Amino acid sequence: MTPDQYCQDKAASSGSSFYYSFLFLPRHRRRAITALYAFCREVDDVVDDNRTPEVSRVKLQWWKDEIDRLFDAQPQHPVTQALQSAITGFDLPREYFIEIIDGMEMDLEQHRYATFKELSLYCYRVASVVGLLSAEIFGYRDRHTLKYARDLGLAFQLTNILRDVGEDARRGRIYLPQEDLQRFGVRETDLLQGQESAGFYQLMAFEAQRAREFYQRAHAHLPDTDRRAQRAGLIMSRIYERLLDELEKDGFHVLTRRINLTALAKLWLAGTTVWHERRRWRRAPPDREQSR
């Protein structure tokens, strides 16, 4: 199995919404973003699949060392071998990869967040930085696109947090800020025991609105000149915003069940997003796609 095939299998088997956005990219960008996604899955699995924090720390340190080897052109893992051409072809910064691993380490050390400001640092490391790397791979002209990528990543992570409240609670993790729980009168024990309290719906609706505001901010930052290059992010946004709609439509019963979109629904959303964006491109003046 080649490094690229390893990454492709890793991405396809995850069933992630991100995979469907990759399908519409040019081949060289698709290879790079698939390798980046596989890297994120590898380091995330270190935390989720290991019950012993000490073992996870050792493995995450190995990945930090592997990033050093990657940037010294001596990668050992199939994922970093596949990333080799991406870091040179798209000038991806080493510090961003370390930042992602630092975010995974936060999951070993911190299972509660007192304020949204604290949570924002976690979201930045595990999601916004991925968005910034993705923007480099997709290509852009206007640096406002980096603000779009940062805020869109945060919106994605907030959506994931809302979807996974019950699953995370069963692992002893509560990502919803403690200040928000107190505001709506929701106790930690309610979440840990899977019991919906009187204020739980209001809490979730508040957090969902916060996520929507980050989607809105992200789209406001994206210049028209970069919409075509960033179409994969627009596809992901459409899928994730639909997921947020479904969570709300279901009444935010996330403590006892996990809401997901079907593969067919994701593919349909991806296809219709591309169709709408192409109509928009045809109405715009001719412009040649570039990347940094």
Rank of each mutant, 00 (worst) to 15 (best):
R27G: 00
G194M: 11
Y124H: 15
S21E: 08
T145P: 00
R231D: 08
R31C: 03
Q74I: 00
R183S: 02
D151T: 05
N50C: 04
Q193Y: 04
W268I: 09
T189V: 10
G89A: 14
Y148A: 01
S134W: 07
V46M: 06
K249A: 15
I33A: 10
Q230L: 10
Y201Q: 08
Q216K: 13
R41G: 04
R41E: 08
W275R: 12
R258V: 10
H253F: 09
A263I: 06
S17M: 07
E136W: 02
R242W: 06
Y6R: 02
E136G: 05
D245F: 12
Q230D: 03
Q61N: 12
L25I: 01
L192H: 04
R288I: 11
D49H: 12
P53E: 10
D107T: 02
G194Y: 09
L119Q: 00
E136C: 03
R228C: 01
T145R: 00
Q157V: 04
D224T: 11
V274K: 03
I161Y: 01
R143C: 06
T225L: 07
S134C: 09
T159R: 05
V58W: 08
F90C: 05
G139E: 05
V274S: 06
L255Q: 13
H77N: 14
I137T: 05
V254P: 06
P26I: 00
Q202N: 11
A114C: 06
Q5H: 14
Y240L: 13
E289C: 11
V186C: 03
R94L: 01
D68L: 12
C123A: 15
L23V: 04
S16R: 06
R278M: 14
N260S: 14
R280W: 14
R150G: 00
L267T: 10
A86P: 05
I161H: 14
T115K: 02
A35L: 07
A38K: 07
Q230R: 04
A208F: 04
F116W: 11
D72I: 01
H144P: 00
R69F: 12
L154E: 15
F252C: 03
R57T: 01
W275T: 09
D180H: 09
L244K: 07
W62K: 10
Y96F: 15
V43E: 02
F156C: 01
F116R: 11
A229S: 15
R41W: 09
Q5L: 15
P285S: 13
V47R: 08
A284M: 13
F138R: 02
I100F: 04
L154R: 14
M1N: 10
A205Q: 15
Y240F: 15
E289T: 13
W281T: 09
H221L: 00
M204R: 08
L162R: 06
I239Y: 04
